[in-house]
Amino acid sequence: MKKIRVLIVDDSAFMRKLITDFLQEEESIEVIGTARNGQDGLKKIELLNPDVVTMDVEMPIMNGLEALKEIMRKYPRPVIMLSSTTKEGTDNTIKSLQYGAFDFIAKPSGAISLDLFKIKEQLKEKVKLAVTANFKNKQILVRNEKNIPHQIKEYSKIDTYSEKSTTYSEEKRLKDKIVCIGTSTGGPRALQHVLPKLPKDIDAPIFIVQHMPPGFTNSLANRLNSMSFITVKEAENGEIVKKGTAYIAPGGSHMHVIQTGTSLVIKVDKSEIRNGHRPSVDVMFESISQLKNYYKVAVIMTGMGSDGTEGLKRLKTTGIVDAISESEQTAVVYGMPKSAYATQLVDKVEHVEDIAASIMNFIKK
């Protein structure tokens, strides 16, 4: 069996040694070289042609973010970023995901993490997953936060579900509306394709679960907010929901949506981990399934595993719901969308760049 050839880029000799030792415990992984900074890393990539690169975000001479841009421009391949949870570290990590990094891992205790063993298994799994990632037809999105988003498309008024009864359509128009989105690996870039294309006056709130550890979702929300017409924010416990706002579940916490009188209210908690995830798409979808008199659009995008599938089933059996899954062609990891599609409950399969238009077609019907 061909081994996965990995290059490790980190300015700390101690960290390079630890990561090398961890990865080489796996028979399927071979560490073929190390580099001390981004500049050194670029030379080693050209020389050694690794399958996967692990790269520290914060390094001297050339940091991980600058090196990543060059890798994606000259030698595109899966890059896994290792990040601290400082404000600068989390902001740069979110940028790296939107510049083309495959995924990231949070260092347990800063730049030099003596307890790096805590993320050892996670690191091995992400390296193995990275070589299966879909890097075909990926456009690297390098945007300035102040850029004005692309002009909103004219959404088709064609009823793609004309075979459904008039009663169904009229009942749907009478209801308040909710959009709920679940995503994981590759999600930050996928969300960057979707949220900036939604109009400010969208007649619905948007709820999002993106699998992330604590400390990173606020940076993700701020970055997406800077490029969107709608407001994008990290969800807060107890806040009253507003239309035209996207709420991202805080990393490490579940997000529930409950009805209080005529208002929807967000509940955030650290209840039991579901299917290895907190936040969990299933938990969010199941809470939304309990809301009566709402028409719902559910979206499942790129990610490993099946989170969101059971929640989609609950949504479909308890209310009026249209479901969208991301296509295999554009999903970085075609796990969660594939699992959802296999239920035969998905109404539309869309390339990521067309998901916003599909959401608006459903909302406006």
Rank of each mutant, 00 (worst) to 15 (best):
K3S: 14
K3C: 07
V9N: 01
R16V: 02
L23K: 10
Q24T: 12
E27Y: 13
A35D: 00
N37T: 08
D40C: 06
L47H: 13
V52R: 05
I61W: 08
L65N: 03
M72Q: 04
M72K: 10
P76T: 02
E88P: 07
G89C: 14
I94Q: 07
A111V: 10
I112S: 08
S113R: 12
K124V: 10
K126C: 03
A130W: 04
A130L: 07
N134P: 11
N137S: 10
V142I: 15
I148M: 15
S162D: 01
K164F: 13
T167W: 10
Y168M: 05
E170V: 07
K172G: 09
G186H: 00
L198R: 11
L198K: 02
K200D: 06
D201T: 14
I208F: 09
M212D: 00
T231G: 05
K233L: 04
V241C: 09
I248H: 13
P250I: 01
V257E: 00
T260V: 15
I266M: 12
R274N: 11
V283P: 13
M284G: 09
S287L: 02
Y294Q: 00
K296C: 04
G303T: 03
T309S: 08
I320Y: 07
V321L: 15
D322M: 14
I324V: 11
S325K: 06
S327A: 14
E328L: 05
T330I: 12
A340K: 09
E353P: 08
S358H: 05
K364C: 05
